[in-house]
Design a protein around this nucleic acid. Structure first.
Lengths: 212, 212
DNA sequence: TATCAAAGGGGTGTTTGCCCCTTTTTATTA
DNA sequence: TAATAAAAAGGGGCAAACACCCCTTTGATA
């Protein structure tokens, strides 16, 4: 009996092509394909649709891989998730692993490595490349707290600050007094060592708080 | 006799998966795979390695799809290029088509469409989805000149404006009077319909004048 | 020599950045 | 449970920076 695999990936061509590869592996067969996380969660409601492994892309519209993995683990903790992404961003990888992924694979790998990863995840419970292992080790002794210091409300303000609005307009949009907004700004400037709004905009874009 | 196909794509997994798909098509077979444009150009030096069609990714390290297509068409104009990308950016698509690509396919398509596109490109010489056709039509009667209006000195100023420097500091860096800098700013604001420096920074980043 | 663009300037009102300080809300813990 | 932090929210005032007028000088060039 082969292990069943579901692929969650928004690029249909890649999804179908991967399906071809997986069906060629001796121990695995594709159950079905999904275009995003929501579609997966919907289909899982039918017990016949619960696979052994989910091959999960991270960047997806509608519902991304991290949210989907969290929701999936909540309901079906026995399903193994293998993350698949071009994203090498440290924070993203850690988020995905914390969400419950059992392995993390870059799209830039050999098909034999994919097969090996699937086998490992299914039979030993995890698979990680040297890169990801090193990353994990590095994150154990972290460089103090480096960014948890931004609060939810401040993040929201930053997004507004990345527009042509004045602080007065931002205040009105956020239903706060202009003085409160100035308070947000001042405390952010201090925490991030910024001198002015231009610096804040650049910071926000660099750190993907605001995407132009 | 099947038509030969070469895939140029930096993500090896996708490359191999696509190869599987293409080898499943009745009229096509994979000749070999390349990880980037330079690799393709090197291999083409052997006449045995000249394929009928190249399936070309656009975003690649080392040598991207556009440069590669231009170089390829220079030496081997009879090879058909089918572009393959997630990029829906108008300018990129047009550049690729001007470089000589015979078709443009989004990664977000069905495998049957890939097969159809390959057939069309090989047998009729071109393949375009409705989206790309509309884009082409739109670019025929262009909206006047839309961006040549920025002068060299203004571009330089914009880069400085994307920092925490004040206008006074920018003036001193560019060896100009602060009033001249303000003049640059005012004329740019007017030409680009911007309201303040924040808007300018966002514009500069969107248009790759400044890369954060 | 007329023209046009680049460079520079004066004046003014608004926005921003940065001090200080008070009130309200939300946790924490003695 | 009351006492006490400690946040979040709001405020006054001020100087610097920014945005927006309208105007002059300079220099190339047609």
């Amino acid at each position: 009996m082969k292990y069943s695999v579901v692929i969650v990936e928004d690029h249909i061509l890649l999804s179908q092509a991967l399906a071809g590869l997986v069906n060629g592996f001796s121990k695995f067969k594709i159950l079905y394909l999904c275009k995003n996380g929501r579609e997966l969660l919907t289909r899982l409601k039918d017990p016949k649709n619960i696979p052994d492994v989910v091959l999960m892309d991270i960047n997806m519209p509608i519902m991304n891989g991290i949210e989907t993995t969290i929701a999936l683990k909540e309901e079906y903790p026995e399903v193994n998730v293998l993350a698949l992404s071009v994203e090498e961003d440290e924070k993203t990888i850690l988020k995905m692993l914390r969400a419950g992924a059992k392995g993390y694979l870059l799209k830039d790998t050999e098909k034999s490595i994919l097969e090996n990863a699937l086998v490992e995840v299914q039979e030993t419970g995890f698979y990680h490349t040297k890169d990801v292992t090193n990353l994990l080790l590095g994150s154990l002794n972290p460089k103090k707290e480096n960014k948890v210091l931004l609060k939810e409300r401040e993040m929201e303000f930053i997004k507004h600050a990345c527009t042509e609005k004045t602080y007065k307009e931002i205040a009105s949009d956020m239903c706060l007094s202009p003085k409160t907004i100035e308070g947000y700004r001042d405390s952010i400037f201090e925490k991030l060592h910024l001198k002015n709004r231009t610096g804040l905009v650049i910071y926000a874009i660099k750190n993907k708080i605001f995407i132009p």
